[in-house]
Design a protein around this nucleic acid. Sequence first.
DNA 1: AGTTATCTCCTACAAGTGTAGTATTAATGG
DNA 2: CCATTAATACTACACTTGTAGGAGATAACT
Lengths: 128, 128
Amino acid sequence: MVNKILKSMSPTETEILRLVWELKEATVQQIRELLPSERKLAYNTVQTLLSRLEQKGYLNHRLEGKAHVYGPAIKQRDVIKTTVSDFLSRLFGGDPKPLVQFLAEDGKIDEDDINRLRELINKSKNSK
Amino acid sequence: MVNKILKSMSPTETEILRLVWELKEATVQQIRELLPSERKLAYNTVQTLLSRLEQKGYLNHRLEGKAHVYGPAIKQRDVIKTTVSDFLSRLFGGDPKPLVQFLAEDGKIDEDDINRLRELINKSKNSK
DNA sequence: AGTTATCTCCTACAAGTGTAGTATTAATGG
DNA sequence: CCATTAATACTACACTTGTAGGAGATAACT
């Protein structure tokens, strides 16, 4: 079991964590630059968010010069797993099908996506 | 456009709203009974949550005797749409594919689900 | 009628969240 | 060396959230 019980992330924290993942590792500046222009947070705000994520155990940092370089303290996959599960259980009582169905009906995923999915499923069935 | 801009729901509020959907309409008591036994909230707590959901525009209520009977003020589908979109954008930058992929890899959806999905997609393609 | 069970309404309150200011310090460009 | 720049650390503060207590009204039981 890889599961420490983590304090849950707030929505904004989640946004920030995703950006760290995107860059693998990042400083406050870099995250700030990655923020979409319609959502520029103050430097200090980003700093606070990163540090809260660290307190909660999602990130850690090393020093590089005077700057903190933040990186994942937990595997992305594990975070996704619990985050998605929580979401699923709150909005759909834990059943993923309505979610996938919604995605399909809403045109968010198309037939090609589905074909790729099928492969994935077969692959993981065989490797099991 | 059906979109009023709603204040977003907190996680617990989302849980409660889902239960209202499940019952179509519900009183505080009924919601309380639906709560899983490991998560019994006080009567007043449920009441607060329902009333906050109403303030935020997700629910409305009518009187039946002295009790409030709460029901959806917005179509479930619309709520799901924005909730899922928000979630997607926070955790995956808006791209649904990693989500679906995760669900598949994690065994949350299987090949049958996918087949049903395919039908759905074809149906909506034709009706478009 | 008095007691009990239900309800709503109003209030509370600590912890979490979003968002950032101020102080301090270290590096850097002249 | 000194002003500017770029970082962190610490502090702040209103709003939201989770969770519920108490007061008061009404219906129902005895």
